[in-house]
Design a protein around this nucleic acid. Structure first.
Lengths: 138, 138
DNA sequence: CAGGATCCGTTTCGATACTG
DNA sequence: CAGTATCGAAACGGATCCTG
C-alpha cells in the first residue's frame, strides 16, 4: 500500500487532454446529441443515427454524470422518462464540439447541414452563446 | 457471416464528427504530440508520457497517413529516422486541439503549463497561426 | 539503434436478450 | 422507457523478432 508515486514524468510538459471524454467515440456522439442536437432522453440517444448499444449508452451516461458533465432528472411531465442535461462543465465543451463539427464538415465528405455550418463559421461565439442560453444552467 | 443490414438510418441531421480521429485515445495523443509538443519521430511519440505500445503506435500512424492527416519522410540528416509531419488537413485540427487543451486545463486538475495556457487563452488565433507557420506546409 | 511487424495472454468493448 | 446480464469479438500491452 505504501507503493509510492507512479512517476510517469517521462516527459516535460503534460498538456493534458481529457481522454475520458475525447478518447471515446460514443461519449463524443452523446455530447453532440445532447448539446448540438438538443436530444434529452435515453431513447432519443438510442435512435439518433448511429446505433449505440443500450449497455454502452447506459455506461457512458453514467460516466458523464460521474464526471459532472451531465445531470439526470426524472421528467416532471412523464415520470418514466429521464432527461439528461449538460452542466456548466459540459457546456464548456461546446467550443470543442463546434470545432470538431467544422473540421469534419470541411474535410469529410459527409452530408452536413449547410445552414448550421455556415452559421457556426460566421459567428462561432454567437452560436455558442445561443446554445448556452438555451440550456440555462441553474 | 451475413452480418449485413446495418440499418443505416439516414437520420435527419447528421452533424458528423470525425470519429476515426476523435473517437480514439491514442490518435488524439499522437496529434497533440505532433502539433502541440512538436514531436516528430516514432521514438519520441513512444517516450512521450503515456506509454503506448509499439504496435498500437504503428497502427495509428498508418491510419493517420491513410487519412491524409500526417505524412512520413526519412530524415535527411539521419536516414534511420522517420519524421512525421502534419498535412494541411492535419493542421486544420489545431483549433480542436487547442479547445480540448483549454477545456482540460480548466476542468481537470492536471498540472498544466500555465504560460502556454495563458497564451492560448489570450490569443487563440495568433497561437494557432504561429504553429501553422512553424510547420510550413509545402 | 530506429521503425515496425508478429505473436499471444488479458482486458475491455459492444451486440443481443432480457428485466424493472 | 430505462437499464442490466451475458458472452463472443476486438483492442490492448508486452515481449520478441526483423530489417536497414
Amino acid at each position: 500500500m505504501t507503493r509510492n508515486a507512479p512517476i510517469r514524468r517521462r516527459s516535460d510538459c503534460p498538456l493534458s487532454i481529457g481522454l475520458e471524454i475525447f478518447g471515446d467515440k460514443w461519449t463524443l456522439l452523446i455530447l453532440r446529441d445532447l448539446m448540438l442536437k438538443k436530444l434529452q432522453t435515453f431513447k432519443q440517444f438510442q435512435d439518433s443515427g448511429e446505433s449505440i448499444a443500450t449497455n454502452v449508452l447506459s455506461d457512458r451516461l453514467e460516466r458523464l454524470q460521474k464526471q459532472g458533465i451531465v445531470t439526470a432528472a426524472r421528467s416532471s411531465v412523464d415520470a418514466r422518462v429521464v432527461t439528461y442535461h449538460p452542466t456548466a462543465k459540459g457546456l464548456d465543451l461546446l467550443p470543442v464540439l463546434v470545432e470538431i463539427v467544422l473540421w469534419s464538415a470541411r474535410h469529410e465528405k459527409t452530408a452536413a447541414p449547410p445552414k448550421l455550418i455556415e452559421k457556426m463559421t460566421r459567428d462561432k461565439e454567437g452560436f455558442i452563446q445561443e446554445l448556452r442560453g438555451r440550456f440555462s444552467v441553474s
